[in-house]
Structure formats: C-alpha cells, structure tokens
C-alpha cells in the first residue's frame, strides 16, 4: 500500500476516533441535559462520518473500484441524528428537566408552546 493512502486513512481514522471520544466526554461532563444533548448529536456523528470516509478510501484502494457503500451509513446518521436529538429535547422539556443555573432565557420554556 502506498504511503500516502495509509497516511490519509490513518488521519481520517484518528480524527474520527478523537471526535467520537470528545462526544462521549462531553456527554459525561457537561452540566445539564440540554447541554449534554449537543455533544453526541454533533461530535459523534462527525466522528463516525470520518471513520467511514477512512474506510471508504481504504476499500476503494484495495478493491480497485470506487466504494460508495459506506456513504449510506453516513447519510443515514446525518438524517437520523437531528431527529433523535429533537425528540430527546422535546421529552426533556416535557419532563421539565433541570437546566444549568447560568442558562439564559429560562422563561422561554416556562410558557409552553403548546396549548393543550
């Protein structure tokens, strides 16, 4: 395997691994539910995307033809991550979870958007 392909793949894998780890670190140490929601939806999605790009480059080289199969998983994650984040945020609001003390505009969640 030529060195530059190995370099590109390694770079993508490392960046992906770092983002996956950062997402989980954020999930473990951010102060409240709403801030914790940010870490996995963004960092983890990009991390897995980077891992998939690395794998795509590798399998394109080893099979000799363009491998776009991995793109399916990336697209799927990009479509589903915001939807599940939105659902989680909604259920968090519904359960009136505590927000961090420094949160701005807490009055916005006091007056509900839905008149039931």
């Amino acid at each position: 395997m030529p060195f530059w392909i190995e370099l590109i793949v390694s770079l993508f894998l490392l960046v992906g691994g770092v983002f996956v780890l950062l997402g989980s670190v954020g999930l473990a140490r951010l102060p409240d539910f709403y801030t914790r929601l940010h870490a996995p939806t963004k960092a983890t999605t990009l991390g897995v995307g980077c891992l998939l790009i690395g794998s795509m480059v590798l399998s394109t080289w080893s099979s000799g033809s363009l491998s776009i199969y991995e793109v399916l998983i990336t697209i799927f994650l990009l479509i589903t991550a915001p939807v599940s984040a939105h659902m989680l945020a909604k259920s968090g609001l519904h359960h009136r979870l505590e927000h961090a003390k420094q949160t701005g505009h807490p009055e916005l969640i006091e007056e509900p958007l839905h008149k039931e």
Partner: peptide, 30 residues
Amino acid sequence: LASTITLTPGTVSADVSDDRSRLLLHVLHL
C-alpha cells in the same frame, strides 16, 4: 430547517409552536 440547525453551530432545535410560527432552540454557548 430544524435538522440543519441541530447539525450546525452549537444549537439544537427543541420544539415548534403549535401554529408553526416559532422554533425553540437551545444554544450551547450564546
């Protein structure tokens, strides 16, 4: 729009009002 907002700058869309005229966001660092 809500999905785009969730995926991009430090914001998560949390709720839409019943009449679809307002979107509630949570911002990580405002």
